[in-house]
Structure formats: C-alpha cells, structure tokens
Design a protein around this nucleic acid. Structure first.
Length: 691
DNA sequence: GAGCACTGC
C-alpha cells in the first residue's frame, strides 16, 4: 500500500474534522449484530447509546422550543426518541408525535421496528404514511412516521400541523429539498404555536447552522414559554473505528486508482468486503472490466465484483446483498446510492473516489445539468463510516489529505440551491406564503431561480399579476403532486376531452423510464420500440405501450418480451390511480378522446408551450432552436421522432451532454402555441414563428 | 446514434 500513508504514523498529523484520522469511536464492547440473543426487546433498548440521554432529551424538549440532536448511525435516536416522548405523555389528549424521514423505505422500516418494540399492531398506536400508503388510524395512531414530503402535503389541509405536539425531523443534514422547505415552514409555525416542540436530528457538521437558524430569541425579550434558543445534545454512535488513508499525490484517473487500490487491499489486507464509491454507470462498468482484466493478468483469484446503481434491474441489485462465498472477497462498485439509501453489511474497506454526480440548475438557461463534482467533507465522512459497521475498518481516499483539509467544502450545496424551484414555489403559495422572496430558508436559493419560477408559474396561468394563486387553476395545479407543467396539462386535457389519455401520459412522464435499462440490447430495444412507435411522437407511443400492458393483463412476461420495465409499469398504474382520485376530487371527470390524437397533442401543448422548438430551415443534422430563447437543441436518439425531424415540436425535458437533447417530444401545430399562451408568445411569434 | 447521481408528493 505504498501510495497511501496513514495520518499520524509517518508525518505530523493534519486535521481531519475533529477526529484526526479516526472516524468513529466504538462505544460499546459488543457489536449491534451479536450478543443480544438472550436479551428482551426492553434490554436491547436500554443498551442503545441514546438510552443514557433519555432524561436529558426529555428535559430539553420540555424546556426548549427546538432541540437539536447530534447522533451518529446506530445511536438509536430514530426509534427511541419517539417512544420516550410517548412515555413522557406528549401523545396524550389526542395529540400526536410525528417523525419524518427523507425516504419511504426508512419510514416503513422504522415504523415497523417501533411497533414491534412497543408490542402494538402497526397501523394502530404506531403508524406510517408515505405516498400511496397510509397505515394509520385516525383514532388510535399516536406515533406517526412519514416522509417529509407527506408532512408538507398535510400542511395544505392543516397549515399549523395542529394535531402534532412534537415533530422530529430526522436526517436533516441531508438537506433535501423537502426537508429544507419543511424546516423553513416549521420555524414559521413555531411563532404561531409556542407549545409545539421541534426536534431536529442531524450530523455534527450541520448542528450549529441549524441551531442558528432556529434561534428566534431576541435580545431584551422576556422569555415566555419554552426557551427560544435551541438546545444541542450529542449522542455517540455505535460504529467501529475507521482508519483513514490518503494518497500522497493527487491521482489523475480515479477509476484506475480505485482498481489498483482494490488490488492492493486484496493483496495485503485481511478478508472483508470492499465498497468503492464512483460516480455513475460508466465509471462502474469501466472499473469492473479493468479489475477483471487486472486480476486475470496477474493471476489473482478470489474477487467477486458487483455493480450497484439505481438504474440496475431489481434482481441485479439483490446480488449486492447475497452473502459472499466462503474464501472470496466481494467488491461492490457503487454510486452515491450506498452513501445514504442502502446499508450494506459486511463492508470492512471503503475506497472513496472523492466525486459524485450532482444536479445543478442554471436559472438563466432554465436547464438542469448532471455533472461530476467533488464531494463534501460531510459526504466523505459518511462514505468512510460505511466501513465500520461490523468491525474496525479502513477507508482509502483517492485524494490527498491536504486537499481534504484545505480545499474540500465542509458541507455540500443544499438541493434547494441546485434545483428548479417551480414546484417549491407553488407549494409555498398554496400555503399562503405571499412574500416568497422574503421567505426565511435554512439556505436561501438564488433570487434568479425564484424569479424564474415565478415567471413560469405566471405564464402557466397559475399565478396572477399580484403573484397570488389563480382560482381555480392555481389551486388545482397546487393540489396535484406533480411538476406544475404536467398538472397544467392534466387540467387542460379536461377541456380537450382527453383526460383519460393525458393522466396515463402524466404518469409515464413522472417516472424515470418505462424501457428496461439498455447496455448490450440496444438493437432489440429499438426494434421493440418500433412496435409501439407513433408518428406523432413519444407521448402517443406511451399510450400504445400502456394499452398493450393493460391488454396483456399487466403481465410481466409481456413486458419482458417487449423490453419494457415491469416495475416501472406497476408504478405507472399506481401514479395513474392516484391522479384519477385527485382529478375526481377536483371535479375533473375522466373523458376519453377515443383516438383523437390531436386533442392529446393540444393538451400537452397547453402545459409545455414554453418548451417549443422549431427545426432550423436548412439544417442537415437535425438542429432545432427553442422558440423562446433560440437555444440550439436536438431530438434525443432515444425518441421515436429521432431522424424524423418534424418542423415544430414540444419537448418534456432537456438533457445536456455535449449537446442539448430534447427527451420525449411530440409534433405540434405552431398556431396552438398562441392559443395556449397568447401573452407568452406575442413577442416571439412575430420574430421567429412563420405564420 | 446517445446515456440517466439520488430522493419525494
């Protein structure tokens, strides 16, 4: 392992956060996965690190409006704190305790565990709510787990969240879009409801800024009720030590460096699985190929390589969890998915490239890009921690310690500063927040992004001249849990008599892809697509696929035969059912246009008029220009209209690589643009759309 | 003729 050095061993130690090269401290003598065979659930609960802090936590919640709990993984905070609160009486008198999570799976898992510990039936005293699943009972449920997105939706009916006495926001350090919106709103609610208690659980690195955000104490103010200054409590975790190693010189090719590091670990370290963090499918495939070649040419045996990324078919993802064969060493090459969303057991070594793919939004061009960017120290810590779950581990960072300590940012950029804010703004408007630009965020998005979002909503007829939600359109669009452009398309479809068809299209557009991930089967996929291809474009093609799926009786076999992702289609059915319920509630019945595809295209245009593009008159390579901003764009090769190049189209989204590609396009008549949005197209039509 | 980190309502 010559290219690595261990901080503190060969050179004077530099600073690694607070820990100086060692990441997590073990606090108990036994691991969480062994030694509890005879203990009752109650005994197990008492052994969790958080147990020692029970009184302190309850005291703090009693006396402070906001309590920030800093806790590493395995402290037991998520499962225990809601129970402590319940025991202390916070759920009495018809009140409820809420605990939010960023992800659905976590909600289900935690709720199940807590119901078990409390020895109650899930869905009664302890319940959970995620999209498509409400396992709660209005009369009985006292402790409720839910995604932060669901809690935001609940605010539309109950803006002060009056049924909750305590709201615990878990994993707040991840700074997801909905967590940040939720935190901003909770701060507002607190002013109106001094009796409400908020608990924010976060990693060390974010605790101080969270506390500053929630500190509403003013100088000279007479304190009434709970103390306004947040309390910060620290609970240790239950991970094992992870030794950190850095490269001595910067690496130029992290894929190659990762593979050679894996080879060295395999050569020189005890048995134990390896987790390698790379950025995407390309990296991962390249690394696996390289490692296979290297192992072959050097005659090394005993390595089992597994890829892991979200686009992988379910069956392949499961390989990651299968036990490593005896005498073998598993090497998992993963994207960020293993950083937060999935927990892998048996990992002893982590190799960290220092990069991940991150979304960035440019409000000027209104384009979201996916770019490979350096991770933050917080991510690096999280990645390293993955090595210490079963026994002391090691983490090999493919960057220098100097880089880590001097150049790496402390935390990542919150999602809200990297996203298109259209959905976020309409949500706040629906909650009666009028002064969007003055909203108090944990991290403020740029004014440009806000203004762009307001413009888009105005052009859709969702906001009026005073930037208030229009009635009924604005309120209806806010009610539908999808991108406002899609919601607007749904509303318009009722007028065009094709809502039956449009909600199918809306459901398909709101999931990633209905085709099975390619690689190696490109030709077959293209051929399969031809069977469904419609001259009008991709949206109509989706209708054909959906029809076929229903006619096959929702058969997985049929999907397999046609290169269609069965799980994705199940999801389409689920989303479609939800949209059906919502549209009915909005008083929009379902109508079918019975094959009148022009109605469907007009409804799509009513939502997506801003995404119109025109073929350049003498273009030989299929170059289009957007009508609004004259940007150069091309039809994506995966579209059924690729190389067909009709004169006028609207697209669903842009993806940018070396070119800007339009994904999911449909042919339109340019006169529909002025019909759909007269104000929006007044100027542009004179200059760039021939009549 | 190209490529989709990850969530969520």
């Amino acid at each position: 392992m010559s290219q690595f050095w261990k901080p503190g061993s060969e050179r004077p130690r530099l600073v690694d956060d607070e820990e100086g090269g060692v990441l997590l401290y073990a606090t108990s003598s036994s691991s969480s996965s062994s030694g509890f065979g005879y203990g009752s659930l109650e005994k197990q609960r008492q052994r969790l690190p958080v147990y020692k802090y029970k009184t302190a936590i309850l005291y703090s919640v009693e006396t402070h409006a906001t309590t920030i709990i800093v806790g590493e993984t395995g402290s037991g905070k998520t499962t225990q704190i809601p129970q402590y609160l319940k025991e202390a009486g916070w759920a009495e008198g018809g009140r409820m305790i809420a605990c939010t999570q960023p992800r659905r799976l976590a909600v289900q898992a935690v709720a199940t565990r807590v119901a078990e510990e409390m020895d109650v039936k899930l869905g009664e005293e302890v319940g959970y709510t995620i999209r498509f699943e409400d396992i709660t009972n209005e009369e009985l449920t006292r402790v409720k787990f839910l995604t932060d997105g669901v809690l935001l939706r609940e605010m539309m009916d109950d803006p002060l969240l009056s049924k909750y006495s305590v709201i615990m926001v878990d994993e707040a350090h991840e700074r997801s879009l909905s967590t940040d919106i939720l935190l901003g709103l909770l701060k507002k609610i607190q002013r109106r409801r001094p009796e409400l208690r908020i608990i924010i659980s976060s990693a060390t690195i974010e605790a101080k800024s969270m506390a500053a955000f929630f500190n509403t104490r003013r100088r000279c103010e007479q304190e009434q009720g709970p103390i306004k200054e947040p309390a910060i409590l620290s609970v240790e975790g239950r991970g094992f030590n992870v030794e950190i190693f850095y490269v001595e010189d910067p690496v130029s090719d992290y894929v190659w460096a990762a593979v050679s590091t894996v080879m060295s670990i395999h050569d020189q370290e005890r048995m134990g699985d390896i987790l390698v963090f790379l950025t995407g499918q390309d990296d991962i495939d390249a690394a696996i190929q390289l490692l296979t070649e290297e192992a072959q040419s050097s005659g090394k045996q005993g390595l089992v390589t597994v890829p892991l990324y979200s686009g992988l078919p379910r069956a392949d993802q499961d390989l990651v969890f299968s036990p490593t064969p005896k005498g073998k060493r598993k090497v998992i090459f993963s994207t960020n998915i293993a950083e937060t969303s999935l927990t892998l057991e048996g990992i002893v070594y982590v190799v960290d490239s220092g990069f991940s793919k991150q979304r960035f939004y440019n409000p000027i061009s209104d384009i979201e890009n996916l770019v490979v960017a350096p991770i933050s120290k917080a991510s690096a810590r999280q990645r390293a921690g993955r090595a210490g779950r079963v026994r002391p581990g090691k983490c090999f960072r493919l960057y220098t310690e100097d880089y880590f300590s001097k150049e790496m940012s402390v935390v990542g950029i919150p999602e809200i500063q990297r996203s298109n804010l259209v959905s976020c703004v309409i949500q706040l408007k629906a909650l009666g927040i009028d002064n969007i630009l003055g909203f108090d965020w944990p991290a403020s998005p740029s004014a440009e992004s806000m203004i762009r979002a307001l413009e888009v909503l105005y052009s859709l007829g969702v906001l009026d001249d005073d930037a208030k939600l229009t009635s009924p359109t604005g309120f209806q669009v806010a009610e539908i849990p999808l991108d406002p452009l899609i919601s607007k398309m749904i509303l318009a479809s009722y007028e065009f008599g094709c809502s039956e068809e449009i909600i199918t299209i809306a459901a398909v557009l709101s999931i990633q892809s209905i085709w099975i991930p390619v690689r190696g089967v490109q030709k077959q996929l293209d051929e399969a697509k031809l069977k469904f291809a419609a001259a009008e474009g991709d949206h109509v093609t989706f209708l054909n696929v959906y029809k076929g799926f229903i006619q096959s009786n929702k058969s997985s076999k049929w999907c397999h035969k046609n290169f269609i992702n069965y799980h994705a289609m199940r999801k389409v059915i689920e989303v479609r059912e939800q949209l059906k319920r919502i549209t009915q509630r909005l008083g929009i019945g379902l109508k079918s246009c019975e094959g009148d595809i022009q109605a469907v295209r007009k409804a799509i245009t009513a939502g997506f008029f801003a995404n119109a593009a025109r073929l350049e008159p003498f273009s030989h390579n299929g170059m289009y220009k957007t009508v609004r901003t004259s940007q150069e764009v091309y039809i994506h090769p995966s579209s059924v209209l690729f190389r067909v190049n009709p004169k006028f189209i609207v697209y669903h989204s842009l993806v940018s690589t070396d070119r800007q590609y339009m994904r999911n396009v449909i042919t339109i008549d340019p006169s529909w643009l002025t019909e759909a949005a007269p104000h929006f197209y007044q100027k542009q039509l004179h200059s760039s759309v021939p009549q």
